[in-house]
Amino acid sequence: MIWIAVLLAALFYLPTPYVVMAPGDAVDLRAAIRVAGHTSPARPVYLTDVLLYPASPLGLLAKYAPGYRLLHRSDLEPAGVPSEQYREVLRRSMIESQQAAAVVGERAAGYRVVTPPSRVRVVAVLKNSRARGLLEPGDIVVEVDGHAVTSLARMVAIVGTHPVGGTPATIRIDRRGSERIVSVGTSGSPQGQPRIGVLIAAEPGKADLPVPVRFGGELERISGSSGGLMMALDIYAALSGRPLSEVSVAGTGTIDFDGNVGPIDGASQKVIAAKRAGAKIFLCPPGNYREIEGTRGIRVIPVATFEQARKALAAGEQRAA
């Protein structure tokens, strides 16, 4: 009988090089964002996230479960990049996302807000990346395809317009004070989103906001930039004093200081989190729409900008699927 106990222990506890991506939480932003002098929106605005946990040998079966995905650890944490450094990159991404959300939300409500100084720096070039020999750690990304890169979200959105294996992205960089231009082809992320195979970190400046905004609550445990769109909508709803929709809204998508919405990973998991919370609408970037457009029980609306999202909700596209 001892060998049975040993076998069971191995199935449940032996480490593997894989991680399970599962549906996470739908965070009600009314409890996480405070806009000075204004009450929170009447209806929930949900930011959605994913749950990641180590896969045991038995956990490898998760890839057959609806809404679950099996990823190699190297797909999440780039090889050669210390975990602490990687977490710091994600933390900075969240700070920039919050800054951009506040700027976009307040501008939409009629306030004049200057875009804060911000830049994007290459932290590491990933193994097998097409950027090897072209980009180096420390490079500052100035432009992509002739468009100024003022935020991490902006760079991801521009790169996302290049199909995997298609026309390379033209990138202008500043390397130790000397500018140069390189062309880098895209490869697919674990979920097929176009990427250039580098780890990039935001270096955001602090926005001078007419109305102070405080982020806390559940947002303190979330990192990365995929919640930008929903945070901007929540801030706008609080400032305007009008509901975004007649029903509860959830969604995902990065946002830059100009209000452009960028692609994310984990859309399939996030829409499940939204359904579990009772949301009737799910907003997503156009690049993620195809993977979730057939989701039943919730209306999925692709939006490329903050204004598209706001107008879609205001125009009465609130009906559930």
Rank of each mutant, 00 (worst) to 15 (best):
230 M>L: 15
132 R>W: 00
264 I>E: 01
266 G>Q: 01
216 G>S: 14
40 S>F: 04
228 G>H: 09
22 A>L: 02
260 N>H: 12
87 R>I: 03
298 I>V: 13
72 H>L: 13
147 H>D: 09
100 A>F: 10
215 F>D: 05
257 F>C: 04
155 M>H: 07
131 A>R: 02
248 S>N: 03
189 S>F: 06
161 T>M: 03
197 G>L: 08
47 L>G: 10
284 C>K: 05
92 R>M: 15
9 A>L: 14
146 G>N: 03
222 I>P: 04
9 A>G: 10
133 G>D: 01
163 P>G: 06
178 S>R: 15
123 V>E: 11
105 G>C: 09
202 A>G: 14
179 E>S: 13
183 S>Q: 15
144 V>E: 00
267 A>W: 02
271 V>E: 12
319 R>G: 12
243 P>K: 04
108 A>K: 07
11 L>F: 13
309 A>M: 10
112 R>L: 08
286 P>L: 11
171 I>L: 13
55 A>E: 09
256 D>M: 05
60 L>T: 06
170 T>K: 15
80 G>H: 06
149 V>M: 08
198 V>T: 11
124 A>F: 02
30 R>H: 01
220 E>L: 14
210 P>G: 10
36 A>T: 05
2 I>G: 12
275 K>Q: 15
181 I>H: 00
181 I>A: 00
226 S>T: 08
298 I>T: 10
312 A>M: 09
177 G>P: 10
234 D>C: 15
295 T>G: 07
298 I>Q: 13
159 V>C: 00
47 L>W: 03
148 A>Y: 07
191 Q>K: 12
87 R>A: 10
302 P>I: 10
11 L>S: 09
321 A>T: 08
246 E>S: 15
218 E>Q: 14
314 A>K: 13
27 V>I: 11
89 V>D: 08
255 I>Y: 02
131 A>F: 02
153 A>S: 14
234 D>M: 04
206 K>A: 13
205 G>F: 04
243 P>S: 01
69 R>D: 08
188 G>W: 00
200 I>P: 00
72 H>C: 06
91 R>C: 02
316 G>I: 09
253 G>I: 05
206 K>C: 05
321 A>Q: 11
147 H>K: 12
110 G>H: 04
194 P>M: 05
97 S>M: 13
132 R>P: 00
232 A>P: 12
258 D>I: 01
296 R>G: 14
159 V>E: 00
154 R>I: 03
139 D>L: 04
317 E>I: 06
226 S>I: 08
123 V>D: 03
209 L>G: 11
185 G>F: 03
105 G>P: 14
84 E>T: 13
298 I>L: 12
37 G>I: 02
259 G>N: 01
312 A>N: 12
37 G>S: 07
248 S>K: 03
122 V>R: 01
183 S>V: 02
91 R>D: 09
13 Y>P: 01
221 R>N: 09
